[in-house]
């Protein structure tokens, strides 16, 4: 029996959107490391500036950690008693000199309200105020025991050369698909 699922459609969609690669599934530290290594290796091979490589990698790390921590779709890990978040993450090149790092995952209504408020605050800040807010945040509040610093979105905004692009798609009463796009410019 043939299924309706068409792999070529997925391939074409990614190809047409200049996506270099993308992963959907449980985001673990191991997945992050191999994605990170692959991206770094590719960018170095393309003679990308070390500062751009670091920016792209930094955004990838924060985006991945956001998913594994906050995605409301969680899966058990076999090697310990913890769970990890499921989501989509990837990198593309929308224009010759512009990388986009994107992520998508399901969140709750409560998290949507928090994230939306936070991103619109961050996007309203000037470069200088963003830097100041980051500094203050870094010095404020002791870190929580789960290691959350509350700084991830501030950090991606600092690394981004454009305002953070984001979107929420309501799937159900308490199920929202949250997508995030961060742009990093390649300097000539």
């Amino acid at each position: 029996m043939e299924t309706n699922f068409n792999v070529y459609e997925v391939y074409k969609l990614m190809e047409n959107n200049q996506i270099q690669f993308s992963y959907k599934g449980p985001i673990t530290q191991e997945v992050l490391i191999s994605l990170g290594d692959t991206i770094k290796e590719k960018l170095h091979r393309d003679d990308c500036d070390v500062r751009v490589v670091r920016k792209v990698f930094s955004v990838l790390v924060e985006a991945a950690h956001n998913i594994l921590r906050y995605s409301s779709e969680q899966t058990d890990l076999s090697h310990n008693n913890r769970t990890t978040g499921i989501g989509l993450i990837g990198i593309g090149k929308t224009e010759a000199n512009l990388f986009v790092i994107f992520s998508g995952n399901i969140i709750s209504q409560k998290d949507k309200d928090i994230i939306e408020k936070k991103i619109s605050f961050i996007n309203s800040l000037s470069r200088k105020d963003l830097q100041e807010s980051y500094k203050t945040q870094l010095r404020k509040h002791p870190i929580s025991e789960d290691g959350s610093a509350g700084l991830g979105l501030f950090e991606v905004a600092r690394k981004s050369d454009r305002p953070i692009e984001y979107n929420f798609s309501q799937l159900d009463t308490n199920k929202i698909f949250f997508e995030l796009k961060i742009f990093v410019q390649v300097e000539d």
Binding site: R54, F57, S58, V61, E62, H65, L138, I143, G147, S148, A149, L151, G152, F154, E155
Partner: peptide
């Protein structure tokens, strides 16, 4: 390289 959690 430090992520935000490590910076904190």
């Amino acid at each position: 390289f430090l992520n935000t959690s490590s910076s904190k």
